[in-house]
Design a protein around this nucleic acid. Structure first.
Lengths: 194, 194
DNA sequence: CGTTTTACGTTGCAGTCGCAATGTAAAACA
DNA sequence: TGTTTTACATTGCGACTGCAACGTAAAACG
């Protein structure tokens, strides 16, 4: 056998190139050759680590999902419940280049999921995870009496995430800036949590 | 000259076929040949009415935008401000097949707009129109004192539309049903408008 | 040290794409 | 009635796609 190689590392590197291509030129520009060129490798190597294009796409999506989750989990504990929610959801808005790229890719995958059950399932799994996490934290605050919100925590979480999704999309297509989106989000937060 | 032909009608018919293909098999399946087949015409005819694929896509998007606007404008005047907003935004949620198709197509175009200025501009124009319209109606209600909302009408409109966008996307990828989305939306409405 | 297994690189094939080019038929206009 | 103009249909070309099929070289293992 040749050089022992970290498969996961190679796949991750290729996925990163895929995300770059998708963010730069749209997901329809994601081809084996383009990704290979972007990664600086041969298309044969890409084929070596991903048997099909679909497998490559799915892996890349999983990478993005992991990144988002990791960023949210790495968030420090906030003082007030509103601040906590704000900090979490801000992570979903495209404020810097990294989040812009991820946002574009996620948007493209959402469009794709519309007629691709595999991708739809992957997206749904992550969204559920996020929603459950957020709802749980809201419930905790409600139990502790630190928030005035009388609404069902599940509805609040769903609404917050959907609002973040919608604002994110609108920022990505440049209907308004991330700051304006945040202002709108804040208005919603105060309305719901007091 | 041959048979005098209604150009706009032909283009609209082709656009309808495009939307069908996009909704059925994803926007990446939209090719001159597929659209032509779906419309039951030759690809030469499609080329006759649209000089480029891009022109065809843009036209189809404009058709969708018109449909949405027409449906919203055709909405009867509601009793309460909340009911009015609710009726308007419900039109944006994918409750029936028609709105599901339009939603899918719009979602795909939003992803596309991320790196296509022409489409981005078209989307932005429509979104602005919608937002202005909604904000204006909210302002009217506020002036009449028929709503308790203290927030800036612009922010409310932006938030409502973004929330509708986000909920719509989540319904399209089947994270939850349109009814659940509506429940969440209602919770938001009462929180904001009282 | 020889064998085997893995990690790539290269090439090619069948299919699809957008689009240009060309052909044909029919109706409006002179 | 003849000419011109428009409405299509057909064909083909160059570019691109995913993917299979090979080839090669190097390192782990016996």
């Amino acid at each position: 056998m040749p050089k022992v190689v970290d498969h996961h590392e190679r796949r991750t590197r290729i996925a990163a190139a895929l995300l770059q291509v998708a963010a730069d030129r749209g997901i329809e520009a994601v081809s084996l050759r383009h990704v290979a060129t972007e990664a600086g490798v041969s298309s044969g190597m890409v084929q070596h680590y991903f048997r099909t294009k679909d497998e490559m796409m799915t892996f890349a999506l999983a990478v993005v999902a992991e990144n988002v989750m990791a960023r949210m989990a790495g968030q420090p504990v906030a003082e007030t419940p509103a601040a906590m929610i704000r900090a979490l959801v801000i992570e979903l808005l495209p404020f810097d280049e990294q989040r812009r790229i991820e946002g574009r890719v996620l948007l493209a995958f959402h469009a794709h999921a519309t007629n691709n059950p595999t991708i739809a399932a992957l997206l749904r799994e992550n969204a559920d995870q996020l929603r459950t996490y957020l709802a749980e934290r809201i419930r905790t605050e409600q139990a502790a009496g630190t928030t005035t919100a009388a609404l069902d925590a599940g509805h609040i979480a769903t609404g917050l995430l959907a609002l973040a999704d919608g604002l994110g999309v609108n920022v990505l297509v440049e209907h308004y800036t991330a700051d304006e989106a945040l202002a709108t989000f804040d208005a919603y937060l105060t309305a719901v949590l007091g």
